[in-house]
Design a binder for these strands. Structure first.
Length: 885
RNA sequence: GGGCGCCUAGCUCAGCUGGUUAGAGCGACUCGCUUACACCGAGUAGGUCAGGGGUUCGAAUCCCUUGGCGCCCACCA
């Protein structure tokens, strides 16, 4: 027999192993079934499972398990990410901790990469194990890695093609330079932090200019103002003048540009094109000279004269001091609030620099999509706009369009070593771009690597390529796609499930890259989940360990099923949600409830000497009202759950299942079955519930299944999804059962209202109007559940001390043998009378309203009439009873 | 500056295209170890649905407006 409480820790690993060994996760590319594919967003190969992964895995596992049970060929491709900057940083830090001063210099490129690869290899097992812990039913035989050779081939090839198409170019552009990490980072990797800094106004020739960064001003020789600013109307574009400046006289030129806000400061500024994005753009427009002031270590260059070699933070006050001595400082505003760019990768201050970088041109119209020539930007817009790709919830489509509108060329080169190296080779003035190094001696490969999102952008399809074929360079990409059965069968993928925070980083770029490279959309639906926050709504962050909930701790304590439910139910898509232990505990209780309900059914079978495995079907003859009502309700449940899952309404479906199991199945049906059980119906209902619940809580359901399944049935994970059978729908049975439930509830209420001791069993008389034949069948159960002595169905209320309750069509009278407290009964009746009078008034008001009668739907009007009649009937009875007291 | 959300019981949240006296879970309170489950059962209390205005026979739901909170994008020297 099953133990009293369900123990996840004794069950989960065993069940997972069982699934894996039976090949339940494996998808077949040759199958004729309709494909259903998910590409798992790859966690960092060196990472630790956190709640973000946990929600992602839970959601995707629900989609996949449901699809699989529905008879689709369900493939979930797992994988890990090499996480370029993040991983390189970790390893460098570790090496430093081991006593190395500058690992890059000491080891050199090849050796450091080896070290990192070694580290990744060692630590990758951790995340794999943790993904399994969540119950993820992904196809491990197809596990992929973003830095594997097959992916490298595709990355190189797509790079080369884009280069040939003129979509990838190399240019001097202003980039976000992180002096601490010594690399470029993308716009999306910048974290803006608000800070207060002094804002200085200096005299610069005839103008006053404002700046918060005087240390960059050494090379400034342009003053810029708005063309319509009347204060400066007498200066013309191109006028020159001399100005005394930090290190002596400079010759400056006037530039008129609309980028200047006349209302800010004095409406005049000098520009530093090498170290400021906006300034760079002004310089581009007017063809101005630009000069580097700060080097890549964050120190001033010789142009700074006496300040050369100084770190910028140190130079700032000294420069101000010098200008002040020269009498050029007009004023200082100490409370200037501005946003400072910091690197989200390493936390250092980002210093814009001009560097030779590789870019993807998103505006060039050279790509063919659906017979039209478009830019990458236009395609990205088109596929979502046309509905080829659906974004859920749809408000994120707006955000996506907004992001595309603001999209600039994408800088894809990074000055780190861990990643896909830029497939470009140089020899003197020659440049070669290709999949493999060029023939001949003297070629040097570009030292940069590619942005990690460049390779992740190909994730949905590169992971479906035949890995052996992919490294054969004589096979063209078109051939490769054609000859990869997985790609042919499973791409485009069905749904991409990920956090809304990487909609621009990743989702948009997958769309860009996949439409370009393989001419298909990467996925049909994008389902975005929200962030999981702490109970008081804060972000969980590593810097605040108390705020963190470790999913593995929660699994150890409450079980995977409970954790999964607590993250899915009550979470609406795209919205942040809060998680705390009590919530998980609540779902642990639910899992246990399900366990015990099953245990009870098995106990029933045991005492009746029935082996559940022998029972396949139930007999449709001789079903009680309760059985019929249950079967009917079950059909509705199947319909609702199936429809809800098809529309990705996971939270709603979860709640529906929760309340069905607990409130209906356990609290009513199982209670009623204590009088007289129909084992076959019990088993049928339980099996159906297990199937419906399996995607949400796979472990308990599979474990229970082994005890209750029909003898020849497969594992639950491989079972067929239930179909609703109209034949079992029986509204009458349901209504009749409701009457029984109402009677029991009324009797219980009378007992507590009059404080009838539990050990006394009063007699109850029901006065029934109309036909209530079905009641007779249920009498025994009513007697037992309501703990009454005898139940009679009569035509008149009994004489004597009686407490009464009035249902629609039925009066319940309880003989109290002197136990009744008249004052108490009177008080209760008065209270009920009050609420009924109020209700009747509301109804009457409605029905007296002509417009309501004319315009509201007819069914609604007649329903309201019926309700009023019932209410008035009840009031009449109460009045009579009150009169007799 | 541009955009997108949110404000419903003490707490966390459902309430879809307007239609019963607004729901759930947790918490609180009162009973209860009744042939699965105290990780339980039966009950009770608790809300002018952020404020104001409008449309409508009818608004938590649609429109306008005020206030508070949050997020995304852009970034101004």
């Amino acid at each position: 027999m099953l133990p009293k409480a369900y123990s996840p820790s004794d069950t989960e690993d065993r069940i997972y192993q069982l699934w894996e060994e039976t090949g339940a996760f494996h998808a077949d590319a040759k199958s004729k079934k309709e494909p259903f594919t998910i590409s798992m967003p790859p966690p960092n190969a060196t990472g630790q499972l956190h709640l973000g992964h946990a929600v992602m895995l839970a959601l995707e596992d629900i989609f996949i398990r449901h699809a699989r049970m529905q008879g689709k060929e369900a493939l979930w491709v797992p994988g890990t990410d090499h996480a370029a900057i993040a991983t390189e940083n970790v390893v460098i830090r570790l090496l430093k901790e081991q006593g190395m001063k500058d690992p890059r210099k000491e080891l050199g490129r090849e050796k450091l990469i080896e070290k990192i690869a070694e580290f990744v290899e060692q630590s990758r097992g951790t995340i794999r194990g943790q993904v399994r812990k969540m119950g993820s039913s992904c196809d491990w035989e197809r596990e992929r890695y973003t830095l594997e050779p097959a992916l490298n081939r595709v990355v190189n090839e797509v790079f080369a093609r884009m280069y040939k198409d003129g979509l990838i170019y190399r240019g001097h552009r202003i980039v976000n330079w992180d002096p601490k990490l010594q690399t470029t980072i993308s716009d999306d990797e910048i974290a803006w932090k608000e800070e207060t800094a002094p804002f200085y106004t200096f005299q610069y020739g005839p103008f006053q200019i404002g700046t918060s960064r005087p240390e960059t001003k050494f090379g400034d020789k342009y003053v810029v103002m708005h063309p319509d600013d009347e204060r400066y109307a007498k200066y013309k574009n191109g006028d020159t003048f001399e100005a005394e400046w930090i290190n002596g006289l400079v010759r400056a030129t006037v530039i008129k540009d609309t980028a200047v806000d006349p209302a800010f400061g004095t409406g005049v500024m000098t520009i530093t094109p090498w170290h400021d994005t906006a300034d760079f753009e002004i310089a581009e427009r007017h063809g101005l000279e630009r000069e580097q002031i700060i080097d890549f270590q964050g120190k001033l260059l010789p142009v700074a004269g006496e300040f050369a070699g100084m770190p910028i933070e140190k130079a700032r006050p000294l420069v101000v001091e010098k200008l002040k001595e020269k009498g050029l400082l007009v004023k200082t505003d100490e409370n200037y609030l501005h946003n400072k760019a910091t690197s989200s990768r390493g936390g250092g201050t980002v210093e814009p620099q001009i560097k030779l970088q590789w870019f993807i041109d998103v505006k060039k119209e050279v790509v063919t999509w659906k017979g039209k020539i478009m830019s990458l930007k236009q395609i990205m817009h088109e596929v979502v706009h046309s509905g080829d790709i659906t974004i859920l919830p749809d408000r994120f489509a707006k955000q996506y369009f907004h992001w595309i509108d603001n999209l600039r060329d994408w800088c894809i080169s990074r000055q780190i070593w861990w990643g896909h190296r830029v497939p470009v080779w140089y020899k003197a003035d020659e440049t070669y771009v290709g999949i493999t190094p060029p023939e001949g001696a003297g070629w040097q490969q570009d030292t940069d690597t590619l942005d990690t999102w460049f390779s992740s952008a190909m994730w949905t399809w590169s992971t479906l390529l035949d890995p052996k074929l992919a490294v054969d360079h004589s096979v063209t990409l078109e051939e490769l796609l054609k000859r990869s059965p997985d790609f042919q069968k499973f791409h485009p993928t069905t749904v991409m499930e990920t956090g809304y925070d990487i909609l621009p980083f990743w989702v948009a770029r997958m769309i860009l890259m996949t439409t370009y490279a393989v001419g298909q959309i990467p996925f049909e639906t994008v389902y975005l989940h929200g962030l999981i926050r702490t109970r008081d709504g804060r972000k969980m962050s590593k810097s605040d360990p108390d705020s963190m909930i470790d999913p593995l701790d929660m699994i150890a304590k409450y079980g995977t099923d409970a954790l999964r439910l607590s993250m899915i139910v009550g979470q609406s898509p795209g919205a942040d949600s809060r998680l705390y232990e009590e919530k998980i505990g609540g779902y642990r209780n639910f899992v246990n409830k399900l366990w015990n309900a099953s245990r009870f059914i098995l106990l029933q079978c045991e005492s009746a000497e029935i082996d559940p495995h022998d029972i396949e079907l139930f007999d449709q003859e001789g079903l009680t009202v309760a059985d019929q009502a249950l079967l009917s309700a079950l059909q509705d449940l199947v319909t609702d759950v199936t429809a809800g899952l098809a529309e990705y309404r996971l939270s709603e479906v979860g709640e529906r299942l929760y309340s069905f199991v607990w409130d209906y199945f356990c609290d009513w049906y199982l209670e009623l079955s204590k009088g007289e059980a129909n084992y076959a119906v019990l088993l049928h209902a339980l099996r159906t519930l297990l199937k419906l619940l399996h995607p949400y809580c796979p472990f308990v359901t599979e474990e229970i299944w082994t005890h209750v399944k029909p003898e020849h049935a497969k594992l639950l994970i491989q079972e067929e999804w239930p179909l609703a059978d109209e034949a079992f729908k029986n509204k009458d049975a349901f209504d009749q059962l409701q009457v029984v439930i109402d009677i029991i509830t009324a009797i219980r209420k009378l007992r507590t209202d009059h404080q009838v001791p539990l050990d006394s069993h009063p007699e109850v008389v029901l006065v029934v109007q109309g036909k209530q034949d079905s009641l007779v069948d249920q009498v025994e159960q009513i007697v037992r559940m309501a703990r009454i002595g005898a139940l009679k169905i009569g035509s008149k209320p009994p004489q004597g001390e009686v407490a009464s309750a009035f249902l629609s069509g039925i009066e319940v009278h309880m003989l109290l043998e002197g136990l009744v407290d008249k004052d108490k009964e009177k008080a209760n009746l008065l209270k009920e009378q009050e609420s009924l009078v109020a209700y009747a008034q509301v109804l009457r008001g409605k029905l007296e309203n002509k417009q309501f009668i004319e315009r509201a739907p007819h069914q609604l009007v007649s329903a309201e009439r019926e309700k009023l009649a019932e209410t008035e009937e009840k009031l009449k009875k109460i009045g009579e009873r009150l009169g007799s007291l």
